[in-house]
Structure formats: C-alpha cells, structure tokens
Design a protein around this nucleic acid. Structure first.
Lengths: 241, 241
DNA sequence: CGAGGGTTTGAAGTGCATCAAATAGTGTGG
DNA sequence: CCACACTATTTGATGCACTTCAAACCCTCG
C-alpha cells in the first residue's frame, strides 16, 4: 500500500519517534492518513475536541488564535517535518490554537490515543517529547523577548538570520519561504509595516532585496543590526523539533 | 534538622513530585537547601552553567532576559510554590533566562543531576513534568497572543481577572501582588503607561483603585472590557504548575 | 489581455515610549 | 510622633513606531 509506505518512512525519520517501540510504530503507520490540504484549508479550530495530531509532510501550516472580531495572532508557521496538535494530550483533549494550511500542503494525521498510550508505556518516548517541549518553550521565551525588545526591522533581520546557514562566512542568498504578508503576521506586524521596515533594514545594512530573494555580502551585516537588541549570542540555532 | 524537615514538607506538596519514588524524595530532601534572598538578589544569569533548579518557598521571583544595553524582557514572575530552572536539563545545562528575587524571598535549591536521573528512571515523573511543560507552553501562547491583540488597558484587566477568584459572582477586592512597576514589566509596558492605562481602565469599567487594592462590583465589568480582545472563553484559569 | 492577489507607497491617526518634573507613600533616625 | 530621605507613582509634554485607510503598482496566471 503506497500511503502507509510513505507514512512509515516519514515517521521513522522523526527524531521524536526514534525511541518508540516497533509495535507502536506499526500501529501508528496503520492508522496514519495523508491529506491534501489546499491553501486556506482549516485543519482544526482552537478549543475543538482533539483526537488527532498531525505532521506537516509538505507545504506550510499556520498555527494561530483568533478573537471574536476576527483579529488573529500567529503562534507559529510550521515547515515540513513539524508535528502539531500533539500537546492536546495534556490539554484536556482540546486544541490550544487553530491550524490552517497556508500553501497547498500534505498533512499526515495520527490518532492522539495511540500517542497517549505509548507515552505512558514508553519512558523513552516521554523523554523525547519532554525534550522537544523544552526546546519549544525556549523558542517561545525568545519570541516574547523579541516582540518586546526588537523593533520591526530588527525582527525581520533576525528572521532572515534564522533562515540562513549560520555557519556561513561569505556572501549568502536567502529565499523567503512564503508570502511577505505571512512573514509579517509571523513577526507580529502589518504587511505595510513589513514592507517599510524591510526598506529600512536595506538602507541600514546594505542587503539587497529582489522579490522574495535577499542577498547579503556576509551575515555580519545583519548580526550587528539585529542581535544587538537580543539577549542571546549570535549562533542562535533552532535545532528543529 | 529543621531545614530538611521544612524542605520535605514543601517538596511533598508539589504536584510534580507526587509521582516520585520515596528514595528519590529522600535524596532530594538530603541535598535541598534554603536560601534567604533579599530584594534584588540575582539567583542566576541567562546562559550560566546550570547545576541546580529552584522552588520559590516564599516571596516572588522574576525571570527575565536582558540585552547588552540593559533593556530587559520579563518572561514571568513566580509566586511561592513555583519551580524554575528545571528545564535546563534539556537545554545543554544552561539557564534559558536570568532569575532575580523581587521581594525578600526564601528559595529552595536542588541539584539538577538528581532530577535528571529520576526523570530517566521514573516514567511517572517524566509524565508529570511533561504535563507541567504543556501547561506552561499554553500560557506562553496566550502571552504572545495578548501582547499582539490586547492594548495596555485590556492586558491590565486580564491580569486582574487572573488574580481574582474566577468563580465569584458578587463584588470582589483584588490586591496587586507586587509593585505596580513590576506589574507593568510583567505585562510588557512602561510604568507610566501602566499608570495611565489603569486610569483608562477605571474610566471604562467603573472599577475602583486605591493604591494596590482594586474593587469591582462584579467580574463582568472587566470581562466585557478585556476578554473581547482574547481568543479564549472567560473562565481562563491557569491551573498552577 | 484582463482579473485578482500580493506588495508598495502615501497620508493621517493612535498608542506607547521617553524625558522631565511633581506628588504620594514608606521607612528611618531623631 | 515628626522630619527627612528615598522610592513608587502620577502627570505633563513631546516624539516615534506602528497601524489604518486608501490608492497605486506589479506580477502571475487563466
């Protein structure tokens, strides 16, 4: 069966499941499903009852929270390989945010009940999840810091740095992974502000912007500009979860 | 020995340790120490090497991150009973924030090595910690949302609501737990902004403010005002960690 | 080519920060 | 119990960053 083959390969490559038992992995693959989600497809809504968790197979998924009058706060935008909805196990089985595909995406869905069971039975998995959660928590701390201490241009510079290969020493080309409007929301600002702030960043650092492509002579250009308003030392890798 | 008696009692009451083995608890109590920390005492600094984690026994502890030029972002302000520094286990043994006592406080210090060991040996404890971490993560999501979607006055209203007994129906009196300046930093605003925003909140909702005391006829006054700019339904308890 | 979404630009408004100074509040020693 | 010193809080005036509303521009794709 094609689908389960594919799911298996993806699941086995997830760091979190390296420690899982073979029986669990089998069961997981059995009940895995792939879904094609068009742009704008809503996968679930904040506070919905949760019985599945998900993995982004390809595309991009936005996690967000929305008020009654439609204002929304983007919590994160996830690339291929990322898990989401899995924390609902500890949240009274309800999702702590809404999820929407922001590009045509392929999403794998998996039953939370299996995960819940295996986490209780397999300490190794619990540890792996704990570790992932701690990493995420740290990222959130950083996010709060950045929104407090960095201005719009600095946040953009920081975002670009995180997209780049942080070991590189020479000239670099960075491609924005999705819409500028979406980047703006990810960074907690309006599209207009993003546009203007990117212009300011360009003037201040000498980077070159053509559409979704950004070229820089060296990372230092951005580091000097953005990292001065951040509490962390520069190589600030995310160690993907 | 007085000290270890006291530590024991506190540790046994922590939800997280209900699942711990008796041997572990014994060892933990053995190596526990109480410290008196005056106002302003710095307990550790962001990115210090971590070998201890802590519990607030009494007083208040501020967790924050600071840039080179002294600007700081407050991550959280913890009351008695809260654990901090424990995530360093997963962070390459370095603290993800700085910690400072903001009132004269008593702090219990405990070796991370013991916790690390027990988490690996005792699945129940790992689960308890996982659950606590998930709860914290959700709080962080909410924090990011609030800083994006709520204005200063609404954030204050929301803060007051979380201090109050959310089941109450009649008139309520709320006491600010610490300095207004500190509340302001906790909410990500300047003291001046706090003062003015509180005034605006007073005008808009009819609450009464006298020093550190706030009186309201009913919670609804604040709910209408603050929760309209939030994605969650009102009774939004924190379920303390 | 034309429609529609993404992006930029302009003009004006709002909210919060900043700087400066007045006022209230608290604890201390006399 | 009072006066002083010091800190917390408030108030005023001003500036800046970001938002909002509006319109133009651009790019892609049918």
């Amino acid at each position: 069966m094609r689908e389960s083959e594919e799911c298996k390969k993806i699941l086995e490559n997830k760091a979190m499941f390296k420690m899982a038992s073979p029986e669990f992995m089998d069961k997981l693959v059995q009940s895995a499903h792939l879904h094609n989600a068009g742009k704008g497809k809503v996968l679930f809504i904040h506070q919905d009852t949760a019985d599945k968790f998900y993995i982004v197979v390809s595309g991009w998924v936005k996690l967000f929270r929305e008020t009654l009058d439609g204002a929304q706060a983007v919590v994160d935008i996830l690339p291929a390989g990322h898990i989401f909805g899995e924390t609902s196990i500890f949240e009274n089985d309800s999702y702590p945010y809404s999820a929407e595909a922001v590009e045509p995406s392929v999403i794998m869905s998996l039953p939370l009940s299996l995960l819940k069971q295996e986490i209780e039975d397999n300490p190794k998995l619990a540890l792996a999840m704990l570790s992932a959660m701690a990493r995420y928590r740290k990222q959130q701390d950083r996010e709060i810091e950045h929104r407090t201490l960095q201005n719009a241009s600095q946040r953009i510079g920081c975002f670009l740095l995180r997209l780049a290969d942080q070991e590189a020493t020479g000239p670099i080309t960075i491609h924005l992974p999705y819409d500028k409007t979406l980047v703006a929301s990810r960074l907690g600002m309006q599209p207009e502000t993003f546009s203007r702030a990117l212009g300011k960043l360009k003037d201040a650092t000498g980077i070159k912007v053509k559409g979704a492509t950004v070229e820089l002579k060296s990372l230092d250009q951005l580091i000097d500009y953005s990292c001065s308003a951040c509490s962390s030392e520069f190589p600030c890798h995310d160690l993907n979860a």
